[in-house]
Design a protein around this nucleic acid. Sequence first.
DNA 1: CTATTATACCGACCATCAGTCTATTTCTCA
DNA 2: TGAGAAATAGACTGATGGTCGGTATAATAG
Lengths: 255, 255
Amino acid sequence: MPRVIKHPELRREELLNHAQALFLTHGYDKASLNDVIAAAGISKGAFYHYFASKEALLESLAERFARQALAGVQDVLGDPALDPLGRLNALLAKSRQAKVETAAEAWALFETMFRPENLVLFHRINLAASAAFSPLLVEIIRQGVADGTFCTFDPEGVADIVMQFGMATHDVIAKAFAGGSDADMDIAIETLERRVRLYEIALDRILGLPDGSIRIGEPGYVRAVMTARRSNPSVGADAPPSKNREPGRAPLRRP
Amino acid sequence: MPRVIKHPELRREELLNHAQALFLTHGYDKASLNDVIAAAGISKGAFYHYFASKEALLESLAERFARQALAGVQDVLGDPALDPLGRLNALLAKSRQAKVETAAEAWALFETMFRPENLVLFHRINLAASAAFSPLLVEIIRQGVADGTFCTFDPEGVADIVMQFGMATHDVIAKAFAGGSDADMDIAIETLERRVRLYEIALDRILGLPDGSIRIGEPGYVRAVMTARRSNPSVGADAPPSKNREPGRAPLRRP
DNA sequence: CTATTATACCGACCATCAGTCTATTTCTCA
DNA sequence: TGAGAAATAGACTGATGGTCGGTATAATAG
């Protein structure tokens, strides 16, 4: 095959992009290394020149996700006009927004990320995101406690709960997706909206605020995003990446 | 090899036991099917006579976990002498206790379950446990809301939060274990105790109860369990299950 | 401009893994 | 006793993640 040499950073970025697409659409386990290198148009040797393992590729991907998410949020912390509650709300809104928009295709993200086979991928991304966001959250909560806005004895713990709430949407949606029908989808959206409202009030109370102080996202936000994407069937209709035989299918044997 | 025929239920149970041990000590992914059947002393054919796939084995294992956990908790719901708060506390205490005692070796559970490679296993067990416990939780919370003890608009959501809190210990411990030293261990225990206190108060507030109403476990419980096990080094010193070469180690090639 | 070295890349090869298949032994019960 | 069903064995398969010796290109030195 023709040997194409590219700038290492570009190659690396390309690899990450193709890996991201494949991992999202088919899951970390099901997308094989061969699929990734085929998509990127390089050899095995080249891949292992850039990443020590498939696992390392996943790790780098998660880090990049976290980095991107963090980048879109930095300004919030620096704004001196905001009080702790304002900062917290701004951070939550941004993070919620970023969660949907980080992937180019919001619908693809929803349809593929929240499937059992993406547990590992999702967990890694959230771990990285958590590591990136937690310090910000803790700082904000600390400020709030200091000036009397919030009331809790464990800012780190509360920050973790906030991250948990963010991650929990995964299981809520995954459970609903298990059904598959449009009706199930509707229920999933309804449940998610309701759950977000609950998380808001739960956070209010955990932080000792009056109900309604925390605002993660406006009502109807999830539905708006998902129904908008729903009508665009451009994603998810692609071919399977590898010749994986389905479990249960027998390969032909010698005659 | 000698052909030993056992009662199917016994065989199945044995398979589950060996699989449980291997999955716990080495992780679902790293423990291969060959390891499992070697430990159980049967052939591939025999294994696939009992389980459709490795995945199905994991599923059965998770179901057994959930069944066992549920069994130790059934009496709580039937006790008419308890009010909703009493029931909730009893359920939480039982579940916390069960979480430690289900596995024969508590220390092994802690040391091995809370490692990255056990994410899948852990998630499956918790999914099954959640499916089993959630209805009970929802029912208790509903009762509490009905008689005015609790105050929330989304019993299912609160039940999910309770389960989340239970699962969250995983990441708390896993993060601390990443360090590895005894000092890290101490910090992990401290953090976990603190986190449990936070969860108690968080639940109080989410349910509209005065602080201190919810009691998941007595202070010092985690430390007591873990330090007791600490002095018994009988676990975890076993040989690797397969001849997995470490990543990075080169196998000898043709000369 | 040539020699040398570092870097990017190739692709055949390997061990291992989950899963399949055929064959054989044992159990069941008519 | 004999036939069919259940249980077990183990060789085999395609795919997978990973390794290795080698090659082509870029960068640098002489």
